[in-house]
Amino acid sequence: MKALFIILFTFYSYGSFAQTAYEKAMSEALQLWEAGNSTEAAAKLERIAAAEKTQWLPAYYQALILITESFRVEDATQRTQLLQRGNTIITQKRTVGASSEWLVLEALALTSELAADPMNLGQKLSPKIINTYQQAVKADSENPRAIAGLAEFQIQTKKFMGGNSDKEYKDLQKALSLYENDQHRELFYPTWGRDRAEAMIQKQP
């Protein structure tokens, strides 16, 4: 009995130590990002992704950081580089993990591309973005990031093109209640987007 206990304890501690190393590194990386050091955060996540080939979240967060950064940079070449890297990660890793979350990332990357020159790219990219978000909702109808992302994009488009956004604001409300009841399916599963959805609702005309 004692022996069995020791064996169990041994394996438990072995497993938990290894997991802790991953967890520790992941937490550090995400903290770096929160602190605004996105270069360090992305680099750390890249290292984790290279070490933990079966995990999808390090690569997911690395791509998320790159794509989020691409919205901020002014320089066109830099933006292209960030997006290309982000998209490469999406293509390489999308078979692992939650496909709905990867699709949201893809839509986000397309939106960043669009933001560079909306007047010329809108015609080509808007249908693609909407289509990608719709696929994300289809893959996981409870994904608040997919629902809110689609709604927000359509609200922004309608601001430009005109049209009624009541349905989109209803979708945002639905996304908000999904954020409330979000069950973390696994450690570090994406939770972002709630603040933005709330801010959008508050700005509802």
Partner: peptide, 15 residues
């Protein structure tokens, strides 16, 4: 600047 240098398969590295 900002290059990521790391040992493949470990968490060791720096920018």
């Amino acid at each position: 600047a900002g290059a990521n240098v790391f040992i493949d398969g470990s968490y060791d590295g720096a920018t």
